[in-house]
Structures are given as C-alpha cells and as structure tokens.
Amino acid sequence: MSTVMTKAINLKLVRNDNERSEPEVQKEVVYDTKGLNLWYGETHALKNINMDIREKEVTAIIGPSGCGKSTYLKTLNRMVELVPIVKTSGQITYKGKNILDKSFRVEDLRTQVGMVFQKANPFPKSIYENIAYGPKIHGIKNKKILDEIVENSLRGAFIWDELKDRLNDNAYGLSGGQQQRLCIARCLAVEPNVILMDEPTSALDPKSTLRIEELVQELKKDYAIVIVTHNMQQAARISDKTAFFLNGEIIEYDKTDHIFNNPADERTGDYISGRFG
C-alpha cells in the first residue's frame, strides 16, 4: 500500500508547487512514431499519431473504449498484423529503424519488445516450462542456463519466493494475479528492452493490481514500459507520461502530472474527471 500512498502524496505535492520549472535530463528515445495512420478495412482506427516513447519511463495510454489505444500498443510490436485486413501508413522507428518497413523482421522486434496481455495467458505447461519457453525458442538448450533464466525471471517479477517450490506444477493452478506475474516473468525471460502492457490488471482484484503496479515501478528502472489502462488512478499512480487517445487521435500527450492536474485540452479534463468515457 505504501508505494501507492507515497505516489498519491507526491502527486499532491507536485500539484502544489507546479513542477514545470524542474530541470530534467531527457531520456533516450526508444520509439518514435511519426504520422501513423491505421485502417481496419474501411475503419480509420488511428489518425496521424505522433508520439515518442523513452526508455526507463512508464508511458500510460488512456482513453475510452474503441479509441485506438490497444491498437496503437499492438502496432508497436506489430501484433496488430494478426488481423489480416490491417493497413498502415506513416512510420514508427524503434532505435532508429522503421518497424513498419516490410524488411523489418517481426520476430526480431518481438524478441526485443515483450508484451503482457489483458487476460493472463500462461501456456498449459509447468511454471518452469512457461518461463523457459522464450529462451528455448531462441535456441537456448543448456539446462543450467535455463534454470538460471527461470530463477532470475521469477525473481525479477517478485514471484520467485512464492513459486520456487512448485516449478513443475501446471501454471493453470495459480491464482489470477500469480498467473499475470508469471506472464510478466515469462516476458522478462527473453530480456526485452521494452514491455508493452495491455490493461494488465483489468481482470485482477485490488491486491493483485497493487502488486503488479509495484512491479511496474521496479521494472521501469531497466525497461521502457508502455501501459494501456482504463483505470485513471492507475495511470496517475504509476506513469511518467500519459497520452490521451480519443477516436483514434492523440488529444494530448504530456507528463502525467500535467495531464492530470493541468490538462491543455478540455476533452482531456472532461475524460479524467469522469464526465464521459
């Protein structure tokens, strides 16, 4: 609970002394989106998206259902292409290379960009095999190395102590919250640079949600994290920057404190204060 409380208090303080003046070191850009448009068949789902995502930051994407926030997230690892009728224009550069370019191999991209889904989706395998899956598909066979990866990944997701004695149990026997943290650990096992999270706590109870949020705070020390959330408080608590999407457009993208305390656009303010959405 303490992390949330402190964060909330921080927010309050920030609001009071209006930290616009605070000097800040700009972190390195991981993703740079320029003029991205996306169509599902005839539906124009993303309109002229411009947005950069920096490392060691949590970037939250908020907005009402159907605003395109999940679509944008899935464009960042090209999972959106699993829907065959998708067309895109514009560019998204990841570390300087355009990932929408046909010559960019999706397998490369997805190895460097992990994803955590809305509903925990462990494989119907043992806990160990769930974590070892990623390294194995990338060709690691040495049992010792795999053991090490499994332990480190589970430690990284702060679930090692809970699970270390039942590594051979089926992952389906875990609680919903544990399954989601297992999925985060599974994602860490491939050692990505970026973690995309698509409403990772929307199916979890408050306690499990809190644990995931604390985990996100830890993970951002090493990873760039992009999180789509329906939960405004969550965005306020855990993110450094927030983008507000509406009808496929970015209405506002700024530091989270500004978005929540001092939104530039009226619609952002209306959405955040719960007047619509």
């Binding site: 690892n77 997805r110 889904f117 598909i137």
Partner: peptide
C-alpha cells in the same frame, strides 16, 4: 491468446504451431 503469447516473444509461426 496462447498463440499471441508465443508470437509476442518472437516465436515464428512454425514454432508456435509445433510447441503451442
């Protein structure tokens, strides 16, 4: 969502078919 998880880690289609 099982195959999505596999693709999401950089697995190829064949690896996903074969293992998941």
């Amino acid at each position: 969502n099982l195959s999505e998880a596999s693709y999401g880690m950089g697995a190829t289609k064949w690896q996903t078919v074969r293992r998941i």
